[in-house]
């Protein structure tokens, strides 16, 4: 049996498959389908300093092979995460990635310091949410600000720090280099691509927020390209996501340069997607004579 374990910035994962932030809540719902201990880790719903209501509905629009969402970071705030969600998650036998989003540089640092000593395995700093008007995407689209917010979090904590990048930029490699230079231990990408759907009967956008983030298989080739470019531009590990729905997709993403993968919208179509991908990776390794899955990371041979 192949060794599926991977190491990202010093954090050991039993396998490289991690449900993506916002697509798995805190695991409570999916635990009613399978034990969470099957998973490499869980990236929890984006957490902010204070409770957030999120945007008005409808918050979802279907697209060819994917969907738009405009949730707007609805969550109970970091204190509720620490007191209610985290104690439960810690008993589940999987790695916990705390996904955080501050509305200012200072608040991002404060959020990170509140996680010190909590037992989360990793922080994923979201500088890329397209659904919040304050901060959010603005952090992720400007190299200087992306660097500043990374540094504020780095200074506040020793927890391994992964910065999640926005694809809605001219040069994602420049942002990646800036967060690397400011102390990020890893980067994860991609967050959703900004999109829009219009109901032609009512001539109104389907989303009450007018625009929202595109994810699902539709974005996969864009994500593979960006992961490949970023993996070639930085020395820190890259965690790849965007449209992954099968073990073959995960292999492709890893060959592009991803040390681990996250699975998001595919879970909505098939709640078992993450465990099917894990089983599929094992089978793929056996069939292809791969003893250690991590050996395939970045092995694409470009023309």
């Amino acid at each position: 049996m192949a060794d599926l374990s991977v190491n990202v910035a010093g954090v050991q994962f039993k396998n490289p498959v991690i449900p993506a932030s916002g697509c798995f809540g805190y695991g409570r719902e999916y635990e009613r389908f399978y034990p969470l201990s099957r998973l490499g880790g869980i990236s929890v719903k984006g957490t902010t300093r204070f409770e957030r209501m999120g945007n008005e509905g409808p918050r979802v629009a279907e697209t060819p092979s994917g969907m738009l969402n405009s949730v707007g970071l609805q969550n109970g705030g970091v204190e509720k995460f620490l007191s209610y969600e985290l104690p439960n998650l810690k008993t589940k036998g999987t790695r916990i990635i705390a996904n955080i989003a501050g509305s200012t540089v200072e608040e991002s640092g404060e959020l990170a310091s509140m996680l010190n000593g909590s037992g989360v395995d990793m922080i994923e700093l979201n500088i890329s949410c397209p659904n919040v008007k304050q901060g959010g995407a603005a952090f992720g689209t400007d190299c200087t600000v992306a660097g500043q917010v990374t540094k504020a979090v780095r200074d506040a904590t020793d927890i391994p720090l992964m910065v999640k990048l926005s694809p809605n930029v001219t040069s994602i490699t420049d942002i990646a280099k800036s967060v690397e230079a400011n102390g990020a231990d890893a980067v994860s990408l991609i967050n959703t691509l900004l999109g829009m759907r219009i109901d032609i009967k009512t001539r109104r956008p389907v989303l009450k927020n007018n625009v929202g983030g595109l994810s699902g298989p539709a974005v996969f080739p864009v994500a593979v390209r960006m992961v490949w470019q970023v993996a070639n531009a930085v020395k820190i590990p890259v965690v790849g996501m965007g449209g992954i729905a099968s073990a073959e997709d995960a292999v492709e993403m890893m060959m592009a340069g991803a040390s681990a993968v996250q699975v998001g919208a595919a879970i909505f179509a098939d709640p078992f997607a993450p465990v099917k991908i894990i089983d599929g990776l094992e089978k793929w390794c056996d069939e292809n004579g791969v003893e250690r899955l991590s050996d395939i990371v970045g092995t694409v041979q470009p023309w």
Binding site: E29, Y30, R32, G54, G57, R59, V60, V71, Q74, P271
Partner: peptide
């Protein structure tokens, strides 16, 4: 009724 994705309470899209 509301438009849904996960149907189980994880994605938070189906608000009222």
């Amino acid at each position: 009724e509301q438009r849904m994705a996960c149907g189980v309470g994880a994605c938070l899209v189906c608000v009222c």
